[in-house]
Nucleic acid binder design. Structure first.
Lengths: 273, 273
DNA sequence: CTTGATACCTTACGGCGTAAGGAATGACCC
DNA sequence: GGGTCATTCCTTACGCCGTAAGGTATCAAG
């Protein structure tokens, strides 16, 4: 399921996101003092989503975590979709925001580091990948993260038009890679079965049900048979066996894909500058 | 919301996917004749998702479309997640399966055509993008589509290990691009407001709430100010004004991103072959 | 002490997926 | 021809969900 965000009143959503609400300091008005806050709710919701996944995120569950009912949250937040916006932007504060020491000539290293950090960010908060990208949330931290990427890309010297499209290519690429890594982990964790077990059950059933698999899909079969499953080439093996195979494969795909993308950017630089 | 698929009994799911069930022909057993079929249910569900989106997909709604109750579906399908698997694989029959006439030397053109078709496929069935990729569905049509891509990539002459990772790069790239296009359309259609209106409301509120935007995010602001918004460069303008701006931008990002990726593949070919 | 705004609660409504069990159907065996 | 019984499809119900409506307790200001 994909959760949609950003559908309420834009004014209200944005002023929550940018924390431009009425300033509470010293404003002791009538009525009981608030025992919650937007930040506390967002923090509880993020913790819940991190620990138990997007499927477990319900207003009742968030309320429970704070020792309150679901309806109590509606005093602070207009609804679930706005809460999701706030969660989304809140975690994006973890994105890298600057590489002050980096050499502008070495845009490749900087972009590689950036992509790695953004990948880890999404692996840490996999539910972020389930927030629909339709209608961007437009929160401060997401903008800050975007600003960092644009700054790094500037170092390539490419023109603004191409740069804009590169942003639109790099972000989805990292998201897609993170999705693959997260999926690999999820598969390993789900139903207590290891990834080997899962694959074993699946491929045994497949082989039985589709005996002519190799003939029907020669290219895929060839690829699976041909490629020797190696550890990271050109990298030390220490501790490598701790990462299960599907995740290792997903990370390697990320590494290779990023290399291809950066090679392509290099080509664009040489060709057009 | 992201909908998860593929969690039921693997045996049952796979035999449904590959239609390896007990053969019904001439088998007139006891009991009333089935007035539905797996295919009819899947077709109705796909039509529903195409027309009204994933959010409208419920067992009751699918049942209604077939003049039956929700529970009637459970005779044919174990549950909603398996139905989703079946829908997913069923539409993947639309993926291109072969380019018999293509010149193997011109892998670039072939991959470009492939990517374009896969993009259109996802734009036609945007709900496919909301099916979680965790635990691949492993259906026949998805495999067929995969086989086609691998065949095209073979023409690059790269080794199997790299090829496998390129598959993992290209597919998410096209999916990400399709997501952007679909989002652009969704934004245009939602709440009856055009994309201009939506952006206008949003950016007006942003400007008011965050007057120092340009100072806080100089790179992003610069990019937006700098890049002249042009139509497709190097392409005829006929009919181009019919496509609204955000979608045009998303498609251009796809075009540029794909070019960068193919340049990167070219570089890998030259460098390592 | 009264007023009135505010935080939080309980209750309830209409949705969801689906478990449980009953009614109708219709090919088979006697 | 009538009983048997697997099978299709139905109704009902349960426990979730987001959230509308309205009540109650709290507390500063007049």
């Amino acid at each position: 399921m994909v959760v949609f965000a950003g559908q309420g009143d834009p004014r209200r959503s944005l002023s929550l996101l940018w924390r431009a609400d009425a300033p509470p300091p010293t404003r002791g008005g009538p009525g009981p003092k608030p025992r919650l806050s937007v930040d506390a709710i967002v923090a509880a919701a993020v913790a819940l989503a991190d620990e138990e996944g997007m499927g477990a995120l319900s207003m009742r569950a968030v309320g429970d975590r704070l020792g309150r009912t679901a309806m109590a949250l509606y005093t602070y937040v207009p609804g679930k979709s706005e809460l999701l916006d706030l969660m989304y932007d809140a975690v994006h504060a973890e994105l890298p925001t600057a590489y002050p020491e980096s050499d502008p000539a070495d845009w490749r290293a900087a972009l590689t580091a950036w992509a790695g950090e953004v990948l880890e960010f999404h692996v840490r908060h996999p539910w972020v990948l389930q927030v629909s990208q339709a209608r961007p949330v437009l929160g401060p931290h997401e903008y800050a993260g975007l600003d960092t990427l644009v700054t790094l890309l500037r170092a390539t010297g490419l023109e603004a038009g191409v740069l804009r499209r590169l942003v639109g290519t790099l972000f989805p690429f990292v998201r897609g890679s993170a999705q693959a890594v997260a999926d690999a982990r999820l598969a390993a964790a789900a139903t207590g079965s290891s990834d080997e077990e899962w694959w074993a059950a699946r491929s045994a059933a497949l082989l039985e049900l589709v005996p002519d698999f190799a003939e029907r899909f020669p290219a895929v079969s060839g690829l699976e048979a041909e490629g020797p499953v190696e550890p990271y080439p050109g990298e030390g093996t220490e501790g490598a066996e701790a990462v299960p195979y599907p995740e290792r494969e997903a990370r390697e795909t990320f590494r290779v894909g990023l290399g291809v993308l950066l090679d392509g950017i290099e080509a664009a630089r040489v060709g057009r500058t």
